[in-house]
Design a protein around this nucleic acid. Structure first.
Lengths: 222, 222
DNA sequence: ACCAAGTTTCGATTTATTTCGAATTAATTG
DNA sequence: CAATTAATTCGAAATAAATCGAAACTTGGT
C-alpha cells in the first residue's frame, strides 16, 4: 500500500466513522503504530484533521460533521454498503439516476463515484457533496432545506423534478422516526418522492431489512 | 510500444484500478522501472496524476478537499469579513436575501447565522451547508453542479429563481480567473446572476478591492 | 541504403524516503 | 501519586528515486 493511499483512506474513514484510533488504523492497514502516527501528524500539519491522544477527529466545520448524522451513518453500515453494491450493478453507463435523501442513498452515491458517464439527480445536498469532484454529472433539485437534514423539499423541488426524467430511481427511505410520527416534513418529503417516481421510468426500493416500511407504505408511498 | 501510448494506458489503468505501482507498470509494459518513473513524472508535471513513492494515485478529487479552494478562502480573508459585517448591517429581520456563489458570499452567509428570522436563497451548496443547523430558512435553487465548484447553474437554476422574489441580492463575483478566460461555466453563472438580479428588489455588489471587475462588467454583468 | 541528430530506454550507483523496533519521555486515569 | 497508555526519539534496514553515461531506436535527409 502506498503511503499517500493510506493517508487518503484515513481521511475517508475519518469522514465515515467520525473518528479514528491509532491502534485501529494500525491493525486495519497492517502497519506499525509509528507509521500511523506519522500519517496523522502529516495530515494534521496539512490541516486535514484534528489530532488527539490515541487517534484523530475531523475538523469541526459545518453541519456535514454533525454528530447525530454520523451516528446514523454508522448504523447498519454494512447493510448499506451491500445495498449500494447491488444498486451499482443495476446501473449502466450513460444512464440518468435519481437518488432521494437518506443515509442509504448516500452510500449508493459514494459507490457511484467511479462511473465515468452518469447523471445523478438528487434532492440531497450531501449526495451532491459526495459526488463533487467526480466525473458524474450532478443535478440538484431546488427547494427548501429541511432543518437537521440535507434534503430539499417543497414546491420548488417538485416542480424541478417535473422538468426532468430519469432511467432509474432509488428510493431508500429509512422508515419514519416513530417518536415524531407523521410530521409536515415527512409529508413534503413524500410529495417529492412521488414527483421522483413520476420522473423515473423505473423505481427501485432497496429497503434495508430494519426499515419500518409498514407505516411508510400505508401513508405516503408514492 | 510508443511512449505516449504507454502513458495513456497508465492513465487509463489509474482510473480503473484507483492506483498504479511503478513495479506493476514495469512488468505490465515490459519496460524498466526508470522508464515508468519518467512517465509518471511527466504525467505528474502535466497535472494528470499525483505522484507517490512507489506509484501514483489519481488527483485528489472532491471539491471539499480541494487545495486551491481552501487557499482562496484564506485569501483576502480580512476584507471578506469586513464586507460580511457591512452586509449584515443592511439586513433586517424577516427579509429574503439572495446570495450568489463565491468565497465572499460564503463569508456573508456565515455572518448571517445569528439571524432568528431570515430567508436566504442561494445557488451555492456550500452556503447552504454553512446555514444548516441555524434557524435561517434556506432555499437552494436547483441546477447542475459545476465541477470543482459549489454552484448550481443551468436552466433549472434560472427557472427556479423566476419563481422567487427577494428583498436584497448580494452579488460578490470575485472576478474571473484570467487563466481560463471566458468559459461556458462563466456564461452559465452570469445567466444565473441575471436571474437573481431580476428576482431581487435591490442588488448590492460588495466587490472586494482586488476583484477584477472590468472584464466582468463589460461582458456579463446583469 | 546510409548516415547523423535527436530521442528513448536502460543498468549501475548514489541519494532520499519510508518503515520499524527499542528505549525514553509525556500524558491520562483512577 | 502510581499505573497505564500514548507519543517521541534515534538508529537501522528496506525500499524507492534521481543521476549519469551508454546503448538502442527513430527520424529526416541524402
Amino acid at each position: 500500500m502506498l503511503s499517500e493511499e493510506r493517508r487518503r483512506n484515513i481521511l475517508e474513514l475519518l469522514q465515515t466513522e467520525g473518528r479514528v484510533l491509532v491502534g485501529g488504523l494500525s491493525k486495519r492497514f497492517r502497519t506499525s503504530l509509528i507509521t500511523i502516527r506519522k500519517d496523522l501528524e502529516f495530515l494534521h500539519r496539512q490541516g486535514q484533521l484534528e489530532r488527539t491522544h490515541g487517534g484523530a477527529l475531523p475538523l469541526r466545520t459545518g453541519a456535514l460533521h454533525d454528530r447525530s448524522l454520523q451516528e446514523k451513518e454508522r448504523l447498519h453500515r454494512h447493510e448499506k454498503l451491500r445495498i449500494a453494491a447491488a444498486a451499482v450493478r443495476m446501473i449502466r453507463p450513460g444512464q440518468v439516476i435519481i437518488l432521494d435523501s437518506g443515509t442509504t442513498t448516500t452510500a449508493i452515491a459514494r459507490a457511484c463515484r467511479q462511473f465515468r458517464s452518469l447523471t445523478i439527480i438528487t434532492n440531497a445536498t450531501n449526495v451532491a457533496d459526495e459526488l463533487s469532484g467526480t466525473s458524474v454529472e450532478v443535478i440538484l433539485t431546488g427547494g427548501t432545506l429541511r432543518k437537521n437534514s440535507f434534503s430539499l423539499v417543497g414546491p420548488l423541488a417538485e416542480e424541478s423534478l417535473r422538468r426532468l426524467s430519469a432511467d432509474l430511481l432509488f428510493l431508500a427511505v429509512d422508515g419514519f422516526d416513530v417518536r415524531y410520527g407523521l410530521t409536515t416534513p415527512n409529508l413534503l418529503e413524500a410529495r417529492v418522492n412521488r414527483a421522483m417516481a413520476e420522473a423515473a421510468r423505473r423505481t427501485i426500493e432497496p429497503f434495508p431489512d430494519h426499515a419500518d416500511i409498514r407505516g411508510a407504505r400505508n401513508h405516503y408511498r408514492p
